[in-house]
Design a protein around this nucleic acid. Sequence first.
DNA 1: CCTACGATCTGCT
DNA 2: GCAGATCGTAGGG
Length: 204
Amino acid sequence: MRGGSVLPAAFYLEGHVTEIARALLGKCLVTRLNGVKTAGLIVETEAYEGATDRACHAFGRRKTRRNEAMFEEGGRAYVYLCYGLHLMFNVVTNRVGEPDAVLIRAVEPLEGSEAMLARRGMEKIQPPLSSGPGNLAAAMGITRQMDKKPLHGPDLWIEDRGRNVQPDEIASGRRIGVEYAGKDADKPWRFWIKQNPWVSKAKS
DNA sequence: CCTACGATCTGCT
DNA sequence: GCAGATCGTAGGG
């Protein structure tokens, strides 16, 4: 399978985090760990804005040891452990000191599905494999060591393989699991590719 | 030091 | 629908 072009640094620096969250749909997340390459098409994202968004770990630009990565220049990973079990993979955006990030919530496997299945202890290629933020991080082999790592390799990067997602293919809605954020929980900052079976199931 | 809880997932009822 | 798994982090004393 041929690779695409690695996203340029400017991709992560220009435009509001919600625009970047939309633009990431259709891009390809790639890891290459011990020679094993896995790649997935990004089909679901959520935007988090540090300055004003109560759902963001860096709300009010408050810096802690955990969220340091968000304060670095856009184009890096922010990886943290959630519920003591699941790693969450985020794409840091914006310039230094503006802690914005996009949570990647689901990918559609494109390459290395054997490795993904092994990492997940699964046998069949079906949506739970890489659908939902914890599941996709496990499938892609995301580790805490990747926190703060630039998204241009050698182990981890995002590339464009020419999948052009049109605006009318994108749906949006409330973010998942941020009820504690008061009225910010109502912001329609979750984005996904319509009809795509790899988009995670919204709980009701 | 101590405690509470979270950007989740799974399996069981 | 709901509880359990499982632990780093934040915040308070």
